[in-house]
Structures are given as structure tokens and as C-alpha cells.
Design a protein around this nucleic acid. Structure first.
Lengths: 198, 198
DNA sequence: GTCTATAATATGATAGAC
DNA sequence: GTCTATCATATTATAGAC
């Protein structure tokens, strides 16, 4: 019962670094080509190792994908939460706009993990989706709170949910059309802002 | 130069029926499990034939998927166009709302082809996407016209495009959350209507 | 038109050397 | 920790019988 390291997750620093590299490349591949189309041979080659070596770090392709997608939710959630803390006293409508901007920026430039999650979730194995339910719900709740504060009393759960679906739909769908050479996050957020009732 | 049948596309009525059945099942599978995850063996089994037999009707999996997705755009486009003709004299904003309702209804209940297109397009082979560019652009133009009429003068191409992306994002994203047992197209369209400036 | 049989290839995963 | 080698299986696609 003496001092034991809280979480000796990584056997060595080298293992931790390799694991991180695998996750990063996997996130990029999943975003680009999808879950089913990402082969472990290609992934390993881009990391600089052989397919079999991946199994030292992850027990299965599913487990690797789950980790990528779990990190993806946590990253966008943390980014949005941090930005909201920096404008804690702003008007509720302005806080919604801040959250939209940060969510969008995370998807489009900051995190392959977040965009991989959004693009791959629909077609990932049921067991993987099940493991992501909790983190997804937690992020949904953040948006529900934000939107409820904006819409004001009385709180109408169905209306809040519809607004969340509409806003996140307008944001997440950008993965299908956004071209950094032509579009800007700021400009799109400005257009969306026109749609939010004062 | 005498009367020749305009398009003797189908060798026999039986072939035409089988081809249609294959397309319908493929649309459902693509919507449910995605393009890469749809195996021709499973598809053929659900149609009631063997995998090899599919090649009598389609030269490749890509060609089959292309046809499914092409039909998907045309179906939603025709449904929206028909509805708009029925309210040709309505106010531009109301015509946008009609188009939203019909687009949504086509995705969510009327056409597996349309929903298969939307869900699978991001991860389908580049060659398939290339063949769909023209039909997709045509449908985009319909929405541009509709939105331009609503926003009025002066026409601002970037603003019209942003509005199209926002509206279609809010609609298409419903494939990720809509549950017929809980949600209704009418209710969601009503919520979206609140977001459209008068 | 659909079948059987099979070619050619790719995949996720495992065992054991180093 | 990573490698080589391989297993077991799945895939798209083709050839030819019926």
C-alpha cells in the first residue's frame, strides 16, 4: 500500500510515443478514407512499421478506432469548454456563436480525431458505437445547456434538441464542402449568425 | 431510318425487373452499412441470386454504386421540383420551406437511393464521385435559385452558398439522429422555420 | 439469366524469432 | 518493440456450363 504510480499506462516512453504516432496517423486516415477503407498495412506503413507490430499497442482495429474517436470527442469538447470559460459573462447568444466557431475550427483544422469521429461514426461497428455513447452524450449535454440558456424560459426539451441538431448539422456538414483555399471559418460563422434569432 | 425503338435498354422485361431489384437492395444496403462494407455476396443473397450473377446486370461494384447514387440525386431533385411547381406563386420564403420539407421527407422515408447517396458519397472511390459531379451540381443550382429568390437583391453568391450549406447541412445531418419513433419531419421543419429570417 | 467454380488479391489477426 | 511468416477468411471479378 505504499506509493504506487497512479497510472503506469505506458511501459516505456518509446511505447508511448509510438502509440501516439499510430493514433495520429489513424485519425488522418480515418478522416480521409473512412474506417473500413483504412487497412492496417497502409496505416503501419505510414507510421513506419509493419502491420503485425500494431498489435503490440492495440488489441484490434476496432480498439484503435474506438480510441481515435473517443479522443476526437474529448478534443472538441475541451476546446469548446475552454473558449466558453473565457467568455463566461457574455450574452447567451454570443456564447453559442463562440461555441460554433470553436467547434468548426476544431473539425476543419485543429483535429483529425474530431473530424474522423464525425465522418466515421455512422459506419463503424456497433460495438464501437456502443463504447462511444457516454462521451457523445456528455458533449451533447454541453450544447443542450448552452442552447437552453440562449432560448431562455420556459425550457422546451424538444425545441432545444431541434436547435442543437440544426446547428451541429450546419457545422458538421462543412466536412463535405469546406475548402480552405476558398472558404473561411469566420465567414461561414458570420453567415450562420444571421440565422440565429436575436 | 424507320421507326426504331428509342432506347432498347433492357434485353427482356425479366432483366429489367432483376436490375431494378438489385438497385433497390443495393440502395438499402449502402444506406445501412456503407459502400465498402456492402459485399456483393450479401447483396446478391438478399436479392435471391449468386454474386457472379450480378455481373450480368452491372459491369462492376463501382458502376452499381454510381447508378444507385445517381438515381438518388434525381429522385430528390424531382420530388422537390414537383412540389415547387405546386406552389409556384407562393412567397419565396415559403417555397424554401416547402423544399426543405420535401428534401427531408425524401431522405428519411421516401428514398433509400437519396439517403445512400448522402451517406456514402464521402468515401466512395474518386472515379465514382467524378461521375456524379454533374447531377450534384444541377441539384445545387436548384437550391441556389430558390435561396437567391428568397434573399432578394442584390444577389450575393457567397451568401447564397453559405445559406445553402447551412440549410442542407441541417437537413442532411438528420440521417444521423432522426428516429421515426420519436421525431417527425413536420416538427423539425417547424423548428428550422423559426431560424429563417422573415 | 443464373449457376458453379475459381482466379487473384486483400484483409485482420497470431506466433515466435530477435 | 518490431520483425517475418503465416493462418484463416473475405473480397471483386471472370470463365464457362446450363
Amino acid at each position: 500500500m505504499t506509493e504506487t504510480p497512479v497510472k503506469p499506462r505506458h511501459k516505456t516512453p518509446k511505447a508511448a510515443a509510438a502509440r501516439q504516432e499510430i493514433l495520429s496517423v489513424a485519425a488522418r486516415k480515418m478522416r480521409q478514407v473512412g474506417y473500413a477503407e483504412m487497412s492496417l498495412r497502409d496505416l503501419a506503413a505510414e507510421v513506419g512499421m509493419k502491420a503485425g507490430s500494431l498489435y503490440y499497442h492495440f488489441p484490434s482495429k476496432d480498439a484503435l478506432a474506438t480510441e481515435v474517436m473517443r479522443l476526437g470527442v474529448e478534443m472538441v469538447q475541451q476546446a469548446v469548454r475552454a473558449a466558453l470559460q473565457d467568455c463566461a459573462d457574455a450574452a447567451p447568444r454570443d456564447r453559442v456563436i463562440v461555441a460554433m466557431r470553436v467547434h468548426l475550427d476544431t473539425l476543419l483544422s485543429a483535429s483529425d480525431f474530431s473530424s474522423a469521429h464525425i465522418r466515421c461514426y455512422p459506419f463503424v461497428p456497433e460495438t464501437v458505437r456502443a463504447e462511444l455513447t457516454a462521451v457523445r452524450r456528455a458533449y451533447d449535454r454541453d450544447w443542450n445547456d448552452l442552447i437552453a440558456a440562449w432560448l431562455g424560459e420556459p425550457p422546451d426539451a424538444a425545441r432545444v434538441r431541434d436547435m442543437r441538431h440544426a446547428l451541429l448539422g450546419a457545422l458538421n456538414w462543412s466536412l463535405e464542402w469546406f475548402d480552405p483555399a476558398r472558404d473561411s471559418v469566420e465567414a461561414y460563422v458570420a453567415s450562420l449568425t444571421e440565422l440565429l434569432p436575436q
